[in-house]
Simulated assay, not measured.
Amino acid sequence: MVSLRSPSTLPVVGVLADGRTYRHLLYLLLAIPLGFVYSMLFSFGFMFGLVFSAVLVGFVILLATLIGARIAAGFERWLANRLLGTDLDRYDDVPADTDGAVAGVRKYVDAASTWRGVGFLSLKFFVTVVAFVPLVALANGLPLLLAPLRYPYVANFGESNGEPVTWAIDTLPEALLAVLLGVVGVLVALHVTNFVAYVCRQMATALLGEPRTDEEASAAESAADDGGPVTVDDSSGSDDSSGSDDEAPAAESVPPEPDEFIPADAVEPGSGDDTGSAGDTGSADEPVRDDGGS
């Protein structure tokens, strides 16, 4: 029997049929605005906090920036779990119970997860810059795929030294060449997208949380819960079977009513209905043979 190969496992072109590719693409699309927001807010927050650290308001700004970084890191962890295929849980390094406001503030400053989140958000800006590469390649490659349907037209590829970079597609051979270049551009862009998403997944695993280890425990518990009723049913079934075994000897100890009232003379010799009746026939014939001999 011939087994069909999944399109997503094909080399080079399988990236087109892999659903993870488009989740990675969505992650990069969201990374561009988020990266700029993180860069502006946290850069200004730390800068103004340090400038005004001589007064109390500077420490308030720094604390608010750290809390905001923790919230943003939690959102990035959720985003990585949904779009990058990670399974991360938040770090459990912040004490739940603290005495006093100073201790409540200090627990966030002392937590390593706070500074790991700050490090991830700082690196997210570089992810934003790299994310432009596959997105620009897709923006330029996708229109070329429709070149045979819309030529003659002029493909615009941006600007270089203030001059627009264009390609006037006027003939069918040029349109077919544009389709080939468009396919190559789209494939390269999607592979770069998966590579950038892989780097982001490694960053998230190292800085945003620890892999959840309770999955196997929960699976074992669910398996135990599923097996529990089966065990109870088996024990109840064994009790029923033992009860039936107890009743069986009592039923067998009572001789069957038909065999009890069948006369020995009514059974034909050699009928062989059962061994019990054959034995009765033999015992009935013996007195006849004895009388005949006498």
Rank of each mutant, 00 (worst) to 15 (best):
G182E: 00
G182A: 01
V184S: 00
V184N: 00
V184G: 03
G185L: 14
V186R: 04
L187N: 06
V188P: 00
V188H: 03
V188Q: 00
A189W: 06
L190T: 03
L190D: 02
L190R: 05
H191N: 05
H191W: 00
H191S: 04
V192K: 06
T193L: 06
N194M: 03
F195Y: 07
F195D: 10
A197P: 08
A197F: 02
A197N: 04
Y198Q: 14
Y198W: 15
C200H: 11
C200V: 15
R201M: 06
A204D: 03
T205C: 11
T205Y: 03
T205L: 13
L208K: 07
G209V: 06
G209M: 05
E210A: 13
R212Y: 01
D214Y: 01
E215C: 09
E215T: 15
E216M: 06
A217F: 06
S218N: 12
A219V: 14
A220K: 12
A220T: 12
A220L: 09
A224L: 10
A224M: 03
D225Q: 13
G227V: 10
G228P: 04
G228D: 14
P229T: 12
P229A: 15
P229R: 11
V230N: 09
V230G: 10
D233E: 14
S235W: 11
S235Q: 14
S236N: 12
S236F: 11
S236V: 14
G237N: 13
G237P: 03
D239V: 11
S241D: 10
S242N: 14
S242D: 13
S242V: 15
S244D: 08
D245M: 00
D245P: 00
D246T: 01
E247D: 14
A248C: 05
P249E: 07
A250K: 09
